[in-house]
Amino acid sequence: MRAPITDLPLAFEDASLRARGVEIVSNLDLKIVSGAPTVLLGPNGSGKSTLLRLAMGLIRPTSGRVTWGGRAIPDERLAMVFQRPVMLRRSAAANVAYALERRDEQRVRALLDRVGLAALAQRPARRLSGGEQQRLALARALARDPEILFLDEPTASLDPAATKAVEDIVQAVAASGVKIVMATHDIGQARRLAGDVVFLARGRLIERAGAAQFFPSPATSEAAAFLRGDLVI
């Protein structure tokens, strides 16, 4: 039997992304391994979303490289939930079925159940609330049976109850062995979910540490300022 292909570790090697003369991500060296959720923390515009898009293989670095399990091309078991996910113009169940390779009603039901949307299976996806849409996007991403799940500020525009629902799902997914890589600028959320933290500012990696170390005693002044609630420019 062949060993299953893995996309971990996910490695950035001196990766930079430049668009229209502006460097969005600069000389990033980062290795993400399996385990507890990795949270990308930093102010808006720090390059978190771009980093996730590079990690998902949606864009290529203009210099340096990104590798998945040592390979230049990722396996298909990556999934991503965007800040504002696109709901296909069909029912919630059909949105999940769309992401499955084969028609499988049972699997659709199980996935909807997993995100607490079983009762809304036949509701048009675009008629769902923001929180429900985000959970549906999670179900759709999970339909791909991902090894790594990227989340780009999934709760940025949600109320606390909807945020909790999403976080609970994320924690359950992480506990099931899926590697979570999540971007957020919400310090509280990072505290609640992170196993380790990648702190970014101005497109640069400023600090990388385990959550237990990062939050009480950040090593850099920028991370300390951000955690204090100061604006990090």
Binding site: L58, A79, M80, F82, V86, Y98, A99, R144
Partner: peptide, 11 residues
Amino acid sequence: AEYREELTALR
């Protein structure tokens, strides 16, 4: 323009 990233991410 709206769907590109989502459909690309879904491969």
